[in-house]
């Protein structure tokens, strides 16, 4: 038998495999190198912190939750609407009911959690396809946002609220610091606990997972609740950064989030994924947008370029993973045939 089959992967092999699986890291670095050559402004601290890290962090926070959801073979299209609805309710409570800011934010997170639980209820108990449930909730969330905010247009939030989106901690944008904390939590949950393990298991073979005595519905509910809270948090950071309630907050965000997760290496068909990859994916998309803006390229063209990049990235990823599968399959075949 081949020696490699006997040895547990050494730390070094694992690190190498991680780096090769983490090709989105190379994509991100490549994009940044290209952008710094093309625009003198790109590689300034001001641009990187304010125009890249700050907005990217807000989207990236949602991708952490989406990684769990997609890995377990689910989908959540309602994150943008959830962000808008939860942040709006929280801010209205602060403005109209004079609720303290921290409580307002907690209220937003609770709304986000409930939003996720509603998704989870229909998906696990009524067994409606996640695509349908969350598409419906996308529409419902947007409608409710309009309904609660009415035509009122609040500009100018309390400073302590605004700081969540506009402030800095140790020179780093607050949303970025929050992202770093959530990244560590996310990686821990995904790679070191049952929560992540069962997401992979459910996404790969749900019936076997259930037969192993695992409460699949409970775990799925956890994933949708988690992404609900994260979407609400992103909504809060968004409004704080914009210094306003906006019913248009997060329109189309679901697509950016899903694109970031998929180009970050999570399989759309479930079973495998990477929290770090998703976050890097979100940054790559923002770097690209930022670069195009710096060149003064028209917004419409930006959307087209981003669309093309997503498709190309996924196509390349698919070809890569097919080749990897083939290689690893061939390895296994060689091992099997050399046994006798």
């Amino acid at each position: 038998m081949n020696m490699n089959a006997l040895r547990t992967n050494s730390r070094w092999t694992r690190a190498r495999r991680w780096l090769s699986d983490m090709w989105i890291l190379w994509v991100l670095i490549g994009l940044m190198v290209v952008m710094s050559f093309l625009s003198p402004v790109f590689l300034t601290a001001e641009n990187l912190l304010e125009n890249v890290a700050r907005p990217a962090s807000i989207v990236a926070i949602i991708t952490i939750g989406m990684t769990f959801v997609i890995t377990s073979r689910g989908l959540d299209l309602s994150v943008g609407s959830n962000a808008a609805l939860s942040s709006t309710i929280g801010i209205l409570a602060v403005e109209a009911l004079h609720l303290p800011v921290p409580l307002g934010i907690v209220l937003s997170l609770i709304v986000g959690l409930s939003f996720g639980l509603v998704n989870a209820f229909f998906i696990t108990k009524i067994r409606v396809a996640p695509f349908i449930v969350t598409l419906g909730m996308l529409s419902i969330g947007r409608g409710l946002t309009l309904a609660v905010s009415g035509t009122s247009f609040t500009y100018g939030l309390p400073d302590s609220y605004r700081d969540w989106g506009r402030g800095s901690i140790l020179g780093l944008p607050t949303p970025f610091v929050i992202l770093i904390v959530l990244w560590i939590v996310g990686v821990y949950l995904y790679s070191y606990t049952r929560i992540g393990l069962y997401a992979r298991s459910l996404g790969s073979n749900e019936s076997s997972t259930r037969r192993a005595g695992i409460n699949g519905d409970a775990y799925k509910t956890l994933y949708y609740a988690f992404i609900g809270v994260l979407a609400a948090l992103a909504g809060v950071l968004w409004s704080a950064r914009a210094n306003t309630i906006s019913v248009t907050t997060g329109i189309g965000t679901e697509l950016d989030v899903i694109a970031a997760v998929i180009i970050g290496g999570t399989s759309l068909f479930g079973g495998a994924g990477s929290v770090t990859g998703s976050i890097l994916g979100a940054f790559a998309l923002v770097v690209l947008t930022n670069g195009l803006q710096l060149f003064g390229i028209n917004t419409l063209v930006q959307r087209i370029v981003i669309g093309v990049v997503i498709i190309v990235a996924l196509a390349v990823g698919k070809v890569r993973s097919d080749r990897l599968t083939q290689q690893r399959g061939a390895e296994a075949a060689r091992m099997a045939s050399s046994v006798g």
């Binding site: 821990y188 070191y192 606990t193 049952r194 393990l197 992979r200 298991s201 996404g203 790969s204 073979n205 076997s208 997972t209 037969r211 192993a212 005595g213 695992i214 479930g270 079973g271 495998a272």
Partner: peptide, 26 residues
């Protein structure tokens, strides 16, 4: 088989009965 393709051999053997560390991680 009652197995999960995208998990490792060890993860399959212990699926649903993973030994935990003192911190609750697998």
């Amino acid at each position: 088989f009652d197995l999960v393709p995208s998990l490792s051999i060890a993860e399959n053997v212990f699926l649903g009965r993973e030994p935990l560390t003192a911190y609750g991680s697998v």
